[in-house]
Amino acid sequence: MSNEIKTAIVTGASRGIGAAIARRLAADGFRTVVNYAGSATQAEEVAAAIAAGGGRALALRADVSDSGAVADLFQRTEAEFGTVDVLVNNAGVTTFGPLSDVSDEDYQRLIAVNLTGTFNGMREGARRVRDGGRIINLSTSIIGHYSPGNAVYTATKAAVEAMTHILAKELGHRGVTVNAVAPGPVATELLLAGRSLELIQRLTNEIPLGRLGQPEDIARIVSFLASAESGWVNGQVIRANGGRN
């Protein structure tokens, strides 16, 4: 990646890890698209905070599970900011509970957003991210730990990791790197909603560093993968979990 002004799309960037990634890339000099599906007010707040700090950002709605919406997201980004240099496939949803209790509706939603949504982003990114660019996917460190209550969510992310490894080989000739970041427990609404304080404390106790991750911990890794310094890192999954697994 050169030092010229660059453009990044971050999906699911209205809050949590996605918002932290959008803010960090903007601080790194990227013109940043803050994608959202339903949280327009929060996405606009993230974009406004970036602008207040001297950056350029645009909040754009697109349901990543809809391939046409993802193609349109790229088109609107290119019209506003030019060629896309970096795509961060962050949008994701989760449920927590035994596999036997997963409803058909929840199963389909997890597949639609986490797997199909990331596939739609990767496919469009493979076609439109510029030569020498970056595609960065979000996975999970539950892969390798296989915590009860996370069966379908973990399965969707395992598929994302498989596609990451393969797309990295398919795009290598263009200098486009494809990597994934797999966070452990991070203190976001996605983790905390619906979980007891006792469970959160147990998760924290399992982490050798003695704390939950923060969204900024993950944003710093994405920043590295989006930079020139990561040019020899390709087809990798970086597990950021404080040593939990």
Score class of each variant (00 low, 15 high):
73 L>Y: 01
59 A>G: 03
176 V>F: 00
46 V>E: 03
141 S>D: 07
58 L>S: 11
192 L>S: 12
123 R>E: 11
195 R>A: 00
72 D>C: 06
159 A>R: 05
79 A>N: 11
244 R>I: 13
196 S>D: 04
190 L>Y: 10
240 A>V: 15
97 G>D: 07
217 D>I: 11
51 A>P: 01
164 T>K: 02
135 I>N: 10
219 A>N: 02
75 Q>M: 09
242 G>L: 05
238 I>N: 08
68 G>V: 05
168 A>V: 01
205 N>G: 14
225 L>F: 07
59 A>E: 04
33 V>T: 06
205 N>P: 09
12 G>K: 06
90 N>D: 09
127 R>W: 05
89 N>P: 03
140 T>G: 06
124 E>S: 11
167 L>I: 08
168 A>C: 00
217 D>E: 09
92 G>D: 00
139 S>Y: 02
227 S>I: 06
39 S>V: 08
200 I>D: 07
202 R>I: 13
47 A>P: 01
131 D>V: 07
5 I>S: 13
129 V>G: 00
167 L>E: 12
40 A>M: 09
34 V>N: 06
42 Q>G: 10
58 L>K: 11
234 N>S: 12
10 V>E: 08
140 T>W: 05
234 N>G: 04
53 G>P: 04
110 L>K: 03
204 T>S: 14
154 T>C: 13
19 A>G: 08
21 I>W: 03
38 G>Y: 02
125 G>L: 00
245 N>W: 14
139 S>L: 05
41 T>A: 13
182 A>C: 01
179 N>A: 03
130 R>E: 09
95 T>L: 09
36 Y>T: 00
50 I>L: 03
81 F>T: 00
39 S>Y: 11
84 V>N: 02
235 G>M: 07
6 K>F: 07
45 E>W: 06
44 E>G: 13
32 T>H: 05
115 L>V: 01
126 A>M: 02
25 L>R: 02
186 V>D: 08
51 A>Q: 11
177 T>P: 10
90 N>T: 02
96 F>K: 08
212 L>A: 10
65 S>T: 05
73 L>I: 00
36 Y>A: 05
120 N>H: 03
121 G>E: 09
241 N>V: 12
203 L>E: 15
135 I>E: 08
119 F>G: 08
237 V>I: 14
75 Q>V: 10
104 D>Q: 14
170 E>V: 00
56 R>H: 09
195 R>S: 04
208 P>T: 13
97 G>T: 10
91 A>H: 03
188 T>H: 04
207 I>M: 10
37 A>N: 12
66 D>W: 04
49 A>W: 08
124 E>A: 15
130 R>W: 05
228 A>P: 11
95 T>A: 12
152 V>W: 05
94 T>I: 11
32 T>N: 08
112 A>Q: 04
69 A>R: 02
30 F>Q: 01
165 H>Y: 15
56 R>V: 09
